[in-house]
């Protein structure tokens, strides 16, 4: 089965009001080219589920988000995401604020077809008090109360990987695949952008096959977009773009998202990459030291 699609055709599958999961973590390996394609589209009223960074900030600022399911939104070296803060501080979005691990449990419940997974995580805190939809339950085995973390069922997931073949075998060569496998499994439709499209024989090497974290049946579409994680990192191919994030962060205080998008977004990814200095410049960005 050939799952290759253009970014535009893939993102056109996202409909108003859908729940969209976004892989990666903060400023790390986010499917930013797919996010930019959403910014160029008319789709709206999305529920977004993410370990958020600029993906969430941009979608909030562009008015695409009706509801956000989050544990944090951060650019890491710039701790507070400027457009997420604006969206919260203006009351523009509904939120379901959870613990990082609760989000993982919600994705697992969705992936496994369960209505919820019981956990102690969240007890005694405002992630329960501020979320009337998250219920506390009795255990059939002890006298304690537990959090019933509901399944986070996703209509669509967006993920960026290093390499993929046309059938949707996806390699993440960097040190961490984050929770991307669960985003892939929790969604009805998983759209994966890759820095490089490779032949299936690429995965014959067992060391490479070990860098594939979900089966191709959990991948619905493959979009080849070299540099597609920019300005986030795609370790080991490139780091995150500190200068670009600083400009993005500054734009929130000076002109807002319209000015940022006017300067960088472009009509398509080729134009975006010209606006940020080209693919060679993206691939030359040094990896961060933690």
């Amino acid at each position: 089965m050939d799952k290759r699609l253009s970014a535009r055709d893939a993102v056109a599958q996202i409909e108003d009001g859908m729940t969209v999961g976004i892989g990666g973590w903060g400023p790390r390996r986010k499917p930013m080219a797919l996010v930019r394609e959403i910014l160029r589209s008319d789709v709206k009223d999305l529920t977004v589920v993410a370990y958020g960074g600029a993906d969430v900030g941009m979608l909030c600022a562009a008015g695409k988000v009706k509801k956000l399911v989050f544990a944090f939104v951060s650019l890491d070296f710039i701790p507070l995401e400027p457009y997420f803060r604006q969206a919260r501080q203006s009351g523009a979005i509904e939120v379901m604020e959870v613990d990082e691990g609760m989000m993982l449990l919600g994705l697992r419940a969705a992936a496994w077809g369960l209505p919820f997974i019981p956990t102690a995580v969240g007890l005694g805190t405002d992630v329960i008090n501020q979320n009337p939809d998250i219920k506390l339950i009795d255990s059939p085995y002890d006298d304690k109360e537990w959090v019933a973390m509901p399944a986070l069922n996703l209509d669509v997931s967006l993920i960026h990987v290093d390499r993929a073949d046309f059938r949707g075998v996806c390699q993440i060569a960097g040190p961490d695949h984050y929770l991307d496998d669960w985003f892939a499994r929790a969604a009805k439709n998983t759209i994966v952008s890759c820095d490089e499209l490779v032949d299936t024989s690429f995965f014959a090497d067992p060391a490479r096959a070990r860098e594939v974290f979900w089966e191709r049946a959990a991948t619905s579409a493959i979009v080849e977009i070299p540099g597609g994680a920019h300005p986030t990192s795609c370790n080991p191919l490139y780091g995150f773009d500190v200068a670009h994030f600083k400009a993005y962060n500054a734009s929130a205080k000076d002109g807002g998202i319209a000015g940022y998008l006017e300067k960088y977004l472009g009509a398509d990814e080729a134009e975006y990459q010209r606006n940020v200095g080209g693919l060679d410049a993206i691939r030359a960005i040094a990896l961060p030291t933690y």
Partner: peptide, 16 residues
Amino acid sequence: YQQPKVMMLGARGFPG
């Protein structure tokens, strides 16, 4: 809570 004066990171992993 719907419209905080200052929004910071979020609950992160603190509950767990």
